[in-house]
């Protein structure tokens, strides 16, 4: 990386002062409302599966995840999820429906490059890092747990 000069620093300071800021409060309120709503729907689905007799610690949460993933994927296919995301920001990115969106969006987008190099290869361009860091950190924590315990 090239060295940053004083002139560049001064200019970036000027830019920082004049450039319009995102509507912070509105964004946070929308993220809270939409994120909360998605979790509330998740709770409805969870209670529904528990009422069907699924085990409340493992089976019902798994079924809930799969259902929410389906909803996120379907709304992405219909072209609705990005419209929600435009207003909700993190409110629709952070829930598991957003994880589904991040998988379906590139899969659809790169269909024009074929089903192997396009759909399949690009499916995890956005969601891949979440799996990598999630799985790697869980394995690391598992290792620490194992060493401490045994």
């Amino acid at each position: 990386m090239a060295k940053i000069t004083q002139e560049q620093k001064d200019y970036q300071q000027l830019v920082k002062n004049v450039k319009p800021k995102p509507p912070y409060l509105k964004n946070i309120v929308m993220a809270f409302l939409v994120g909360g709503l998605i979790c509330l729907i998740g709770q409805l689905i969870l209670n529904f599966y528990i009422s069907l007799g699924l085990d409340s610690t493992k089976e019902a949460p798994s079924a809930t995840s799969a259902t929410l993933v389906f909803l996120g994927a379907f709304l992405t296919g219909l072209g609705v999820y990005d419209k929600i995301g435009k207003r909700a920001g993190a409110g629709s990115i952070v829930p598991i429906t957003g994880f589904a969106n991040s998988i379906v969006a590139p899969a659809m987008e790169f269909k024009s490059e074929g089903y192997v190099f396009g759909v399949a290869a690009k499916m995890f361009v956005v969601a891949g890092p979440v799996l990598v860091y999630g799985i790697a950190s869980s394995a690391l924590i598992g290792l620490i747990y194992y060493v401490v315990k045994f």
């Binding site: 072209g79 995301g85 969106n101 991040s102 379906v104 969006a105 987008e109």
Partner: peptide, 9 residues
Amino acid sequence: FPLELGNQR
């Protein structure tokens, strides 16, 4: 990003 990704600008 892909068109359908729900991100904010």
